[in-house]
């Protein structure tokens, strides 16, 4: 077993660990905003590391065994990860805004600056 294979396993393990953390946080946290924190960040990060393991494995195959079949796969994987990061961030922003507009207050909050802004009425008038 050479060192690059070990790197691939470590990256895969990190990705699975962060996905697991995201799901545990989704089940454990008290309200929708904190659940969004756990879900968005950790599952995106985990997917990035799982894809990194695939990219490293393809490059290893290319340089070690001269097998170029994984290269176009890794380009597509990088593209998929860019799409995933962008859409996850924007989608979580939309969910948080919708939840606040429905009147869900953050649980156990020490400060809520947004409550001072009167944007709920403006949205309702449209």
């Amino acid at each position: 077993m050479d060192i690059l294979t070990l790197v691939v396993y470590i990256l895969l393990g990190i990705g699975l660990f962060f996905n697991l953390v995201g799901i545990i946080g989704l089940l454990r946290f008290p309200d929708v905003y904190t659940r969004l924190h756990a879900e968005t960040k950790t599952t995106t990060f985990g997917a990035i590391f799982i894809s990194l393991s695939i990219v490293v494995h393809s490059l290893h195959q290319y340089f070690h065994a001269n097998d170029a079949s994984g290269l176009s796969l890794s380009i597509h994987v990088v593209l998929a990860i860019l799409v995933l990061a962008f859409t996850n961030a924007t989608g979580s922003h939309a969910i948080a805004q919708a939840a606040y507009n429905r009147g869900q207050k953050p649980v156990r909050a020490v400060v809520d600056k947004l409550a001072e802004v009167e944007f709920l009425e403006k949205e309702a008038e449209e």
């Binding site: 545990i24 756990a38 950790t42 649980v107 909050a109």
Partner: peptide, 14 residues
């Protein structure tokens, strides 16, 4: 976030 998921120490706010 991983540490806070396992320990449960949060102080949220906007």
């Amino acid at each position: 976030v991983a540490i806070r998921v396992f320990t449960g120490k949060i102080r949220p706010g906007i």
